[in-house]
């Protein structure tokens, strides 16, 4: 067993899945985290609870409901079918959607915390200096929240790489589309190919450690980790 005989496809696929999921999550979580940090609406607590659900739910619950929801008999599956898009389970797009839901709290919570920690004073000052809402968001909120944004991106990326249960349930183990690293490792272990399993699992361990170490070093003491 040497490096040349490693199947690289699941590795690239996993990196692609994690990158796309991270972009999707950052685009969604920045405005969402901003709203949650500033709002006094009664919806805040119920919505926060909903968004935190993936933290506590077994991935099998999410996988099970996604399979039913996105399948041809489910409401979302019916919609995608009528739009001529086919159904999403067992496709890469389906995995991106599942991963985005699954990793949402890992992106949302650091961002929300960061925005909450800024407080309202810098914005009030900026408002007296006639900064527009957009200007206040871009030149005050985002720079001050950069540690939170960085944590969010890194955690969303790393958590997606480590995803397993949901992928196993709605992925169908298709090489090049849904056979991600964690599933490939599972398959190697189940078929007693321990050498291949060691290469991938050891690599994953090292990668995860380096990712977290970098995160801790870069963001120093101000970093807040979700769990």
């Amino acid at each position: 067993m040497n490096v040349a005989s490693i199947d690289w496809q699941p590795i690239w696929l996993t990196l692609r899945l994690a990158s796309i999921t991270t972009v999707v999550l950052m685009v969604a979580a920045i405005p969402l985290g901003w709203w949650l940090a500033r709002t006094h609406s009664w919806m805040k607590q119920p919505l926060s609870a909903v968004f935190a659900l993936p933290l506590v739910l077994p991935p099998t619950v999410l996988g099970f409901y996604l399979l039913l929801l996105l399948g041809p008999h489910g409401p979302v599956g019916g919609l995608t079918l009528s739009l001529g898009l086919g159904t999403l389970p067992f496709t890469f797009t389906g995995l991106v959607i599942a991963s985005s839901l699954y990793s949402l709290p890992f992106a949302l919570q650091p961002i929300q915390n960061a925005f909450e920690n800024i407080g309202s004073r810098p914005f009030e000052v900026a408002a007296t200096l006639r900064a527009t809402r957009w200007d206040r968001a871009v030149s005050i909120a985002l720079p001050l929240a950069r540690n939170g944004l960085l944590s969010a991106a890194v955690l969303a990326f790393a958590h997606t790489i480590g995803e397993f249960g949901v992928v196993l349930m709605i992925g169908g183990n298709i090489p090049g589309a849904t056979k991600v690293l964690s599933v490939a490792i599972y398959d190697h272990v189940e078929s007693m190919e321990y050498a291949q399993a060691h290469w991938l699992a050891g690599g994953m361990l090292a990668f995860s450690f380096i990712t977290l170490l970098t995160l801790y070093i870069v963001s120093g003491r101000s970093m807040r980790i979700v769990r």
């Binding site: 399979l67 039913l68 996105l70 399948g71 067992f90 169908g172 183990n173 189940e190």
Partner: peptide
């Protein structure tokens, strides 16, 4: 066109939920 189940029960479930 293969969708692979981890065992024969999961394979059946892919079909019975209408996904395959």
């Amino acid at each position: 066109k293969f969708v692979t189940g981890e065992n024969i029960a999961q394979t059946q479930q892919f079909i019975s939920t209408g996904n395959v």
